[in-house]
């Protein structure tokens, strides 16, 4: 079955990004396809490479990055939600004349069209709320 995952919950103030991560691992282990993971709302902070959690806590940015690299996952971060929260890649930092950037591959900033396309392609679009 083809799944996509939509996450709206806060990256650091709720469990939803972590729960979505475990769900993603489980469905891949069960032999399903994960077409896309779409980060919307507060979940876009997951894409910030500058988050430095304490060493004895999970680093959710790194967990998703490793899973994406292992399984060639498409991690799409809503560009509008990300830019207004200061989650920005090199190209957008240049475009908006910002002094730094904090996200890069496999996280990809893109539009809500990617979420619409995921809803169309996938047999199941599973959401993880706030």
């Amino acid at each position: 079955m083809i799944f996509s995952i939509l996450i709206y919950g806060s990256a650091h103030n709720s469990q939803s990004v972590h729960t979505a991560y475990r769900f993603a691992k489980s469905l891949l282990a069960a032999g399903h396809t994960l077409h896309r993971v779409f980060f919307y709302g507060e979940s876009v902070y997951t894409a910030s490479a500058l988050c430095a959690p304490p060493r004895d806590e999970q680093d959710i940015h790194q967990l998703w990055k490793s899973l994406a690299e292992t399984h060639q996952l498409d991690l799409v971060v809503c560009i509008a939600a990300a830019l207004k929260r200061g989650v920005i890649d090199q190209a957008e930092a240049q475009r908006h004349e910002k002094p730094a950037f904090n996200t890069h591959a496999p996280y990809e900033l893109s539009g809500l069209g990617q979420l619409s396309e995921a809803a169309i392609i996938s047999d199941r679009l599973v959401t993880f709320g706030a």
Binding site: Y8, Y40, G41, L112, G113, S116, E117, A119, I120
Partner: peptide
């Protein structure tokens, strides 16, 4: 919070995609 705005943005995009 931003939910209403984000829901409307998604509605408009999905409609533009013919949904």
């Amino acid at each position: 919070d931003t939910r209403a705005k984000e829901a409307l943005d998604l509605a408009l995009t999905a409609a533009a995609f013919g949904q």
